[in-house]
């Protein structure tokens, strides 16, 4: 447990020097959200934007590790490879959770302060769940990818993969005629459970794959 704590502290401290960038980009997001809140229901997009921002910063720690080749150095410390990977997953998942927390606050506060809209908790929680499922998908692909190809090399490829997924989904959405999904409404109470199971499954499978890749990797 201590080993993972140490590695998490390392990642946090690495981000310390990007504090200014981080605060600046959060502020820009906030301004965007406020401007946007005049004409749409910001309770939906705001939290997701904040979650993505946090996740991007968490993933950036891979780049810092790679730049200083510290992954090699870390392997000389009394740590198992499994612990090293686990700490990254904990860090990335935490970034999503913390992002969701701040996102919720913003999603509630801004519409309330600006437009005096009472928070719609149902809408916010379903937005959060949707965002978390999406991010868990993205991170679950990204992390093993980075372990396999490296943070710099993998970056372009990961964007390509993401683009392909988005385009494919859009195409499916466009091509498939509107189906009446109202019959699913009776299962709507299951959606949160399915969402959480999906998130856990994503990370679990991804973690196993990362371990397999990293155990063979020679840094």
């Amino acid at each position: 447990m201590n080993s993972i704590k140490g590695l998490l502290i390392k990642d946090l401290l690495q981000l310390k020097s990007y504090k200014k960038n981080f605060i600046l980009s959060t502020l820009i997001y906030l301004v965007l959200i406020i401007l946007e809140s005049k004409n749409s229901n910001i309770g939906n997009t705001g939290p997701i934007m904040i979650m993505f921002l946090f996740s991007i910063y968490a993933m950036a720690t891979f780049n810092y590790d790679e730049k200083s080749k510290s992954d090699r150095y870390i392997l000389t410390l009394p740590l198992t490879r499994r612990e090293i990977i686990l700490s990254k997953y904990v860090f990335c998942i935490s970034s999503v959770l913390i992002g969701a927390f701040f996102g919720t606050i913003i999603g509630i506060l801004i519409p309330y302060l600006i437009n005096n809209i009472k928070p719609n908790f149902d809408s916010i929680s379903s937005t959060l769940l949707g965002g978390m499922v999406a991010l868990s998908f993205i991170q679950s692909i990204q992390i093993p990818y980075i372990y396999k190809y490296g943070a710099e090399k993998g970056r372009l490829q990961i964007y390509l993969v993401m683009m392909v997924i988005v385009i494919a989904l859009t195409l499916i959405y466009m091509l498939v005629p509107e189906i009446d999904l109202s019959f699913l409404d009776i299962y709507s109470h299951l959606i949160p459970i399915i969402g959480i199971i999906l998130i856990l499954l994503n990370y679990f499978v991804s973690f196993k794959i990362s371990c397999k890749i990293y155990n063979k990797k020679e840094v």
Binding site: L13, Q14, S17, Y64, S68, K69, R72, Y73
Partner: peptide, 13 residues
Amino acid sequence: GVVLDNSFFSEQL
């Protein structure tokens, strides 16, 4: 105790 060539904690620390 290990000292590697070209590999250490990241430079921001």
